[in-house]
Amino acid sequence: METSAPMTEAMYYVLLTLSVPSHGYQLLSAIARASRGRVQMGPGTLYGVLTRLESEKMIQVVNDDGRRKTYEITEPGKAALAQETSRLQAMLADQERWEGEVKCLKN
């Protein structure tokens, strides 16, 4: 199975929130909501990620009226997001299992 490099936090949240087509303003508030206020993304980071993901065809522009662009996630983007989510879940599961094993050894 082909594996890609781990995503940055910014990249992950942009892909996650673009399951709903959004423009820049909507994305910033969606990311803050999705991370329960933990991630306050700067505008420089947001447009850097959008430009990169668009060039890597993980997102696409669905509406461009010359003033405002609306983006949405593409199929390759969804696949990359699912792969990264699995990786993070596996890491969390590993961490829980390991802590359980350490607890058993101590007892």
Binding site: E9, V39, Q40, G42, G44, G48, V49, T51, R52
Partner: peptide
Amino acid sequence: VPELHTDPMEQAAS
């Protein structure tokens, strides 16, 4: 205000 760039790895990519 949040920093202009909040993710060093993403800024490196930029």
